[in-house]
């Protein structure tokens, strides 16, 4: 038999950081061009932790958390947002502002002012 002692000062953040909270976001890629300069995205955000605790979901657009869960080890959140630039969703655990998980939403432009990058070569071996 093993006796496991956990100091009372250990917070959910300490445990969560060590045990890797999983955060998943769909979708994570937006492609813009001059005809469509932004993406209207419906995000489905899901997180899971092996440790019960107090967790909050953040993005950089509001100073307060998007949503918090108490005594939870999993959660889901849906958010609709017009996206023009990349940003991150991240989770924090009780007692700390340090992120315990983060997911990047990427925004890519398919436009280039350099027309030469869109030219086609006419070689037998090139097809794309």
């Amino acid at each position: 038999m093993f006796l496991v002692c956990i100091p009372l000062s250990v917070t959910a953040a300490d445990v969560a950081t060590a045990s890797s909270v999983q955060l998943k976001v769909k979708p994570v890629l937006c492609i813009i061009d001059r005809r469509t300069p932004s993406c209207d995205m419906d995000f489905l955000i899901a997180w899971q932790s092996p440790v019960l605790g107090y967790y909050c979901l953040h993005n950089p657009f509001v100073a307060v958390p998007l949503r918090c869960w108490s005594e939870a080890d999993a959660g889901q959140h849906e958010e609709r947002r017009i996206v023009e630039k990349g940003f991150m969703f991240w989770m924090t655990a009780e007692g700390s502002d340090e992120p315990v998980a983060a997911v990047e939403v990427e925004v890519m432009t398919s436009d280039t002012p350099d027309r030469r990058r869109k030219r086609r070569t006419r070689h037998v071996w090139d097809i794309l």
């Binding site: 890797s20 999983q22 630039k85 990349g86 992120p99 983060a102 997911v103 890519m108 432009t109």
Partner: peptide
């Protein structure tokens, strides 16, 4: 899933 601190949570356009 990217496990890194969001020091720059506002990103640009790739």
């Amino acid at each position: 899933t990217v496990l890194s601190a969001p020091e720059n949570a506002n990103l640009g356009v790739i």
